[in-house]
Design a protein around this nucleic acid. Structure first.
Lengths: 340, 340
DNA sequence: TTTAGCACTCGGAACCAATGAGTGCTAACA
DNA sequence: TGTTAGCACTCATTGGTTCCGAGTGCTAAA
């Protein structure tokens, strides 16, 4: 168990290292107003804290920096919940004040705010599109061989797919087909659409007209879901400003990872609910071993869930950032609640 | 005017510097099989070439590197049109062989190929969406206060806008409204839609029902065009692998520029037709002063034009890259020709 | 006109000493 | 017994020096 003095010293070190990215020395700590011990005493405590694994030295005669365990302890026990500055409050209120009516616009804007306010990289995982429910389907012929199917879901999300059509299809037939599709698919989750097509609608269409066959095949192929939840990323270049990432190789691996989307998406998808922090190696990717990730969830109505995340160096301004992420996720949820 | 020998030496230097990023010395050149002069002779020629501004030294006793003027001369007069390697050919053929039916997919894939094959960053400017013509408009109510308008254009592009609706609107009324819109707007360029709405349709709708007013206002606002042509970027992280960009600040300014989209888009939009190269300071942006940009156009059918570009260091593999860009733009144009 | 030879330049690597920030340990002190 | 002053020690950093080598420019000879 840590003594009060150790807690105090640990907190000072983490706070200071987060600010300066420089290892913290005993003399420096003892000069702080809030601290009243001599450098020697502090050195003793620091040695103890290091032994316990909360601190580490870069080399034998450097000051101490927090270890990952140190950050973890700091986040779990020493975080003083900060209040937002008026600037932050204003920026958020302003952005959510405007009636931006598109889901994507809200999310994009949120990503922007988050990265601007923190100087880290924000990543927002959109909700699973394929769990939203079909509101309307429309097919518009483009040329004699092609048509585009437009799916509107209950969240106002629009998916579209171009597909081939046999030449022979007539406008009236097409209309019939669309009517059937609408009748049968309204309210169905997008993810279930392909199955429904196979199970019910195929035979139904067959009864009505022979040459729907081909068109249907293509449509079905076009609607096979790719199941990729979209990532909205803000402040990609912010990483470049962190002193711990002056090494090009590190940057490259992080950036490629964000670019790839796949791994990050799955990471966010499987993250636990509520505010979560992953510090350094707590996340499974080597590329992110010097990064921390803070995640929170937001909700669309009742069930639909998305995740917003903030990616920065392990030396992250946890207290400020945690409240910011929390606040923002709340605002998003609230905004969406009004909609659905 | 340059002598043959000077041409030869200049070519060797540029070729070699492009390959190695190291200044080229006289001794090294004289050892090349294709060169039969002593280092001293070559030194004389190099001094002349430097005087003429085609070469420059990093410091007094370094070898020579091409100046921007040198690259320009190289591109204009010394480029030996290279043929694609079989690997390149295969990759391209393979990608365009698949019937990807979405415009965006083709473009995205093209950007991917281009950046993969070159290890530079590819940027493709989509055609002006707002010059495509409306094929169909559809309005789907989402809740009692909101609806989404979906616009399908002749190119298969789909735009959608969420907008507020007054509560009172009835399904039959909405249908009437959509019918009028379709009737009046079919074939109209997207960019002209807002104006048409104001000029013709507003009064028309007014005759039909009083409370369309509000809905119409919102719809009109929603359709006000944002007029941004989309950028498709491939291989953003490729810049990080170029040795001339090991300086973080340089990378940051380039990356922010790409991220911004605005400047790059306008640059590409105003670029001349055909294959163009901009070397170093030939482009107007300080952030890109150490970059070269190669642009080519592609066409959708007859009028619609987009631009594809490749962004790399001034020390670019011009000959390979130029043919690649050319080839790819041709493939894109051809693919699209089949569609429209 | 070309080339061999030579003096010269400059960046980069290696080495060294000095500096200073920081530590650990011990002994004295309250 | 906990705290602190003192001191020896460590190590990264900085600046200075030297040396090396790649490359040049110039001159004189072929």
């Amino acid at each position: 168990m840590l003594t009060n003095r150790q807690l105090q010293i640990l907190k000072v070190i983490v706070d200071d290292f987060i600010l300066t990215a420089q290892p913290v020395g005993s003399r420096y700590i003892s000069k702080k107003e809030t601290v009243d011990y001599s450098p020697a005493t502090i050195r003793n405590e620091m040695a103890d804290l290091e032994e316990m694994g909360f601190l580490e030295k870069l080399h034998s005669s450097s000051g101490r920096a927090p270890s990952e365990k140190g950050y973890r302890f700091y986040v779990d026990h020493l975080l003083s919940p900060s209040t937002l500055s008026s600037r932050e409050k204003n920026l958020i209120r302003e952005s959510f004040g405007k009636k931006t009516l598109e889901f994507e616009q809200v999310v994009e804007k949120s990503a922007g705010i988050l990265s601007d306010l923190t100087n880290y990289t924000s990543i927002i995982l959109g909700p699973e599109v394929f769990e939203t429910r079909l509101k309307q389907i429309q097919i518009t012929p483009l040329s004699h061989e092609k048509a585009v199917a437009v799916l509107v879901t209950n969240t106002g999300h629009v998916e579209h797919r171009v597909f081939s059509t046999p030449v022979e299809i007539k406008a009236t037939d097409l209309e019939k087909m669309v009517n059937i599709l609408n009748e049968r698919l309204k309210g169905v989750a997008l993810i279930e659409v392909p199955e429904r097509l196979n199970r019910e609608i195929f035979s139904l269409l067959k009864e009505h007209a022979e040459h729907f066959n081909d068109a249907f095949m293509y449509l079905r192929a076009a609607l096979a879901n790719d199941n990729s939840a979209k990532l909205y990323v803000g402040g990609k270049t912010n990483i470049l400003m962190q002193p711990e990432f002056k090494d090009i190789d590190r940057i490259r691996s992080i950036m490629s990872m964000i670019e790839e989307e796949k791994d990050i998406a799955s990471l966010l998808k499987t993250s636990d609910k509520g505010i979560q922090t992953m510090i350094g190696h707590e996340n499974p990717f080597i590329a992110l071993q010097h990064c921390s990730i803070i995640t929170a969830n937001y909700y669309l109505g009742n069930q639909q869930v998305g995740t917003l995340a903030l990616l920065g160096p392990t030396r992250m301004e946890y207290n400020r950032v945690v409240t910011l992420v929390e606040e923002l996720s709340r605002h998003m949820t609230e905004t969406f609640r009004e909609w659905y």
